[in-house]
Amino acid sequence: MSVKRDSLSLSFAVGVYGAAFGAASVAAHFSVLQTCAISLLTFSGASQFAAVGVVGAGGGALSAIATGALLGTRNGLYAVRMAPLLRVKGFKRVVAAQVTIDESTGVALAQNNEKDSRTGFWWTGFGVFIFWNIFTLLGALSAGLLKDPAAFGLDALVPAAFVGLVWPRLTNKKSYYLAIFAFLFALSLAPFVPAGVPIIATSLLAVFMGWRE
């Protein structure tokens, strides 16, 4: 019982961020329909913020897709962990794949037995999906009413959200140094290459630093 309660309260708390995405996406000149389509179909917060952020900063569709996709690779690794636990086929596997995200995997892995893990995965996955999409629509509609998004701080919303997304990942010295290097590397490239490219280029720093222990 408490697994379901925990799943739902986490889902609501996470889903509320959807409003920030909705507002950020509209501020980057995506329509309300496109914004909602991204939340329904991409359904991975960091990838979504990144894709609209790259376009908002003047980058092309390919840079945006590549950045969003690179941030989405971790869901694939979560899926590898979840598959043997869920043991689903066909359409159910398609649904399971779509709701395989940070939160559903996190709740599943935090349980003590397989039954609770499955319950946690599905309830958190669906819970976040529902709230995330409702709040995306609300955020997009509210932001759409504003004539000058910068006057309401919406252009600072996206980088602030990225700070919040990277913060819990700074768990050791290596990640801390990488964050600083990536920050400086991206800025030093920015004046010389098309928008969007500096961001993708920093993934090479991650490969370089992760190569050895």
Partner: peptide, 20 residues
Amino acid sequence: INLLIPVALLSSLVAIQTFT
């Protein structure tokens, strides 16, 4: 590498979105 890629991308996004 999988753990580090989001750190690199998100940090560079903070930089680009704030200062360009």
